[in-house]
Write a protein that binds this DNA or RNA. Structure first.
Length: 494
RNA sequence: UCCCCGGUAGCUCAAUGGCAGAGCGGGUGGCUGUUAACCACUAGGUUGAUGGUUCGAGUCCGUCCCGGGGAGCCA
């Protein structure tokens, strides 16, 4: 029997064209240099040849015999200026066809640019047009578009500066999340997407079923879900926390990072039906340890973006949020303020601020209260701990005062709550009491209870919404712009 | 889901109840080492849908759909 194999060849061809060719059968595809790499080594490439591939942002003809093409390949904010000669026999006809949005390859010599706005440019010796874009129909113009419009063309919007930059920052953040936890010895656990845990305090949930929607379950039957796929009600997860606890009580320190679903009919700039959440869970951590970790985590994420996404931040600061850099520097450098819920209530009551919702001990803090505290009083990230027991879910650890639980919320200016976490109730009797008060079925959570029966330990964890973090570090106001394909009530396009 | 604001050309927006408009984008021509280029000409509309008031509705009223801001819920 003959073995078939695919060959990957990489070679550097003097005087500097880096090519990478893959052979899949008889198809050969050229691979050029990414624009970010080219611009990062301007001096090295000046005077040498390079091959780039990307999408045309704009083209300007000059009757002096040349044409300027701005090509962007998504590797960075910057586009590369290509100089093409209008009267060249080999590509002059092709040049006429190149329009904004077209996908092209350009090979040529890199030289210093005499014009303003760019240090180097590429003088085309060979041009290839992969895919033309009809200028009468291409929906993206050179000028600014509204985010509402771009959302309708989510298949093309990553080609814009803002959405492209957001995608690169999101990638860097995601990587940094793994780096942060891996460096601290955390294990990445894949908690289930489909779950039968349907309460946990979270609101509406998505049902997962293979039952015929036209003929829904007969509720008069003894077991209406008998014929459903899982033979019982199943849902999309609203949190991986409870399962993460299982692994924390075996591997010590773990985290989950994956999609999370809420079927709430929330129409706001801060809510999605499908979003990504990071949930660390640590054995032998109390609330203070939890808080310390959360603070270090936020500082690390902000620091990484400041260090590695400079161009993107500069762009966001210029066009989206002027205060962005100050906000991020502040979050990366200053220590977070931490107060108790009771202290927060005192501050709010003593303030002269007029709130739409009056404050008193025992009621939940409203958005206006949170914003006042983090934006007006402390002007930096703020942790609030020890909330009234009645306001928080059953799994949070009851404090000695028996009135509060070891919960923590971290609020940031401009966004509000970005992290919610707690020390978990590890004492069997108190957990059962909490479940009884909150009317949680002990049968459904047998396994969760058994974690307290067999080798229970103090443990803590928190959840951070990736998109909320994205909003914080980019300054982009609507959460629908920081996720590639937003799912909100009435919207599952793309 | 509730409150407020909006929906007019491909995009961003004008238009006292009285002829449907501009800028940008597109097309054509001109000019220029250009940079969100510039100049001229040109094409482009069932004013979100539906019902009503009126001699006459983009404009006023009802209902619905969609978008934005805020609220609730939360991450």
């Amino acid at each position: 029997m003959r073995l078939s194999f695919k060959i990957l060849i990489i070679w550097v061809k003097p005087p500097g064209t880096i090519e990478l060719k893959t052979s899949f059968g008889d198809l050969t595809m050229e691979k050029g240099i990414r624009i970010v790499d080219l611009l990062g080594k301007e001096e090295e490439y000046t005077g040498k040849k390079a091959l780039v591939q990307g999408w045309v942002r704009t083209k300007r003809d000059s009757k002096a015999g040349i044409c300027f093409i701005e090509i962007n390949d998504g590797s960075c904010m910057k586009s590369l200026q290509v100089i093409a000669e209008l009267d060249r026999e080999d590509y002059s006809e092709l040049l006429k066809k190149i329009t904004t949005g077209s996908a092209i390859l350009v090979e040529g010599a890199v030289s210093a640019s005499p014009g303003k706005g760019q240090s180097i440019e590429l003088h085309a010796e060979r041009i290839h047009l992969y895919g033309w874009a009809d200028p009468a129909l291409y929906p993206l113009q050179k000028k600014r578009h509204s985010f509402e419009y771009l959302r309708q063309i989510a298949h093309l919007r990553p080609r814009t500066n803002t959405i492209g930059a957001a995608a690169r920052v999101r990638n860097r953040l995601s990587y940094a999340i793994h780096q942060f936890f891996q460096n601290l010895g955390f294990h990445y656990i894949h908690t289930p997407i489909i779950t039968a845990s349907d309460c946990e305090g979270a609101g509406e949930i998505f049902r997962v079923t293979t039952l015929d929607p036209v003929h829904p379950v007969d509720t008069t039957e003894e077991d209406p879900y008998r014929n459903d796929f899982f033979a019982k009600p199943a849902f999309l997860t609203v949190s991986g926390q409870l399962q993460a606890e299982i692994y924390a009580l075996a591997l010590g320190r773990v985290y989950t990072f994956g999609p999370t679903f809420r079927a709430e009919n929330s129409n706001t700039s801060r809510h999605l039906a499908e979003f990504w959440m990071v949930e660390p869970e640590m054995a032998f951590y109390d609330l203070e340890d939890d808080l310390d970790l959360a603070q270090a985590f936020i500082k690390k994420l902000v620091g990484v973006v400041l260090d590695d996404c400079g161009e993107e931040l500069e762009f966001f600061a210029r066009f989206i949020e002027p205060e962005l850099m100050a906000r991020l520097q502040n979050a990366a450098q200053s220590a977070f303020e931490v107060i108790t819920y009771s202290e927060a209530v005192d501050i709010l009551i003593k303030s002269s601020e007029k709130f739409a919702f009056p404050v008193q001990w025992g009621v939940d803090l409203q958005s206006e209260h949170e914003r006042y505290l983090t934006e007006r009083v402390f002007k930096k990230p703020l942790g609030i701990i020890n909330f009234p027991r009645s306001l928080k879910p059953f799994y949070m650890r009851v404090n000695d005062d028996e009135k509060t639980v070891a919960a923590m919320d971290i609020l940031v200016p401009g966004i509000g709550e970005i992290i919610g976490g707690s020390q978990r109730e590890e004492r069997l009797d108190l957990l059962l009491e909490q479940m009884r008060i909150k009317e949680i079925s002990a049968d459904d959570y047998r396994w969760y209870i058994e974690l307290r029966q067999f080798g229970s330990v103090p443990h803590s964890g928190f959840g951070l919404g990736l998109e909320r973090m994205m909003q914080f570090v980019t300054g982009i106001q609507n959460i629908r712009e920081v996720i590639p394909f937003p799912r909100t009530p009435g919207h599952v396009e793309f």
